[in-house]
């Protein structure tokens, strides 16, 4: 178990071993994950699938360092998540994780540009050029001064994607990123995911959407908090439109 990242990036980005998570609701305990073990290599595009309540979001929250496992080991980019302090997990989320939410999670009183720059602001960086480039990459250069309420669903998700990329994190978890989008817009966002994955980003998507799942080169299928069968290997890619930019 490593507590510090090596100087050279390790090919394994995520190493989960016997990962369990139990929630307490009053006197009741709910086991969301039961001893899940897997590895994710850098540059993979992994889909986490399964029915509602199977533990997908719980697993994604653990992988995004937003929560700690009740049992088991989770090594994220060389850091043992369970042994980190709150401050250590914040640093991990700030520099090594770029989360994308189903509900976009944009701050309504900030412009698109300001929203995209937020993680850099929290990291005490001011890289306006990087923000501009990302906005161009996701096709929102012309909307930089718009407020989220002035954007379409697809545009909001693209702004959220740009925000997730601004600190150049190696891991990019996304929770149902196309769940609030229509089919066509969802495919556009998927195209963007694939393009960014092709550029070397590790993409981890929780999804109910078969098109998204089949676009991934690996699938982790969860049932009642357990990983089902061996991982699916790389799949044949469906035809998706190229992302904007």
């Amino acid at each position: 178990m490593r507590n510090k990242p090596d100087t050279e990036p390790h090919p394994i980005l995520i190493q989960a071993e016997g990962l369990s998570k139990v929630y307490r609701r009053g006197s009741e305990t709910v086991a969301a994950l039961h001893g899940v073990t897997f590895e994710i290599r850098r540059g993979e595009f992994v889909a986490i699938t399964g029915p509602s309540g199977s533990g997908k979001t719980t697993l994604l929250n653990l992988l995004g360092a937003m929560d700690v496992p009740t049992a088991g080991t989770l090594i994220l980019d060389g850091f043992d998540v369970a042994s980190l302090t709150e401050s250590g997990r914040t640093q991990l989320r700030r520099h090594r994780v770029g989360f994308v939410f189903q509900h976009f999670g944009l701050v309504p009183t900030l412009t698109v540009e300001e929203n995209v720059a937020l993680p850099a602001f929290f990291a005490r960086r001011n890289d306006a050029r990087q923000v501009s480039e990302l906005l161009e990459t996701v096709g929102l250069g012309h909307r930089r001064n718009y407020y989220p309420s002035e954007l379409s669903g697809g545009e909001m998700q693209r702004a959220a994607i740009a925000r997730a990329l601004v600190n150049r994190p190696p891991l990019w978890p996304a929770d149902e990123p196309t769940g609030n989008l229509d089919m066509q817009t969802g495919l556009t966002v998927l195209g963007l995911f694939r393009r960014l994955n092709a550029d070397g980003l590790t993409v981890l998507v929780v999804t109910h959407n078969d098109v998204i799942a089949s676009a991934a080169n690996r699938r982790l299928d969860l049932r009642d908090g357990r990983l089902m069968g061996p991982d699916t290997g790389p799949t044949s890619m469906p035809r998706v439109p190229a992302g904007p930019g």
Partner: peptide
């Protein structure tokens, strides 16, 4: 609350 949760998720510390 949700917005604060998002801010924490994208790298805001409790101090921020």
């Amino acid at each position: 609350t949700r917005e604060v949760g998002v801010l924490r998720a994208i790298g805001a510390s409790p101090g921020d």
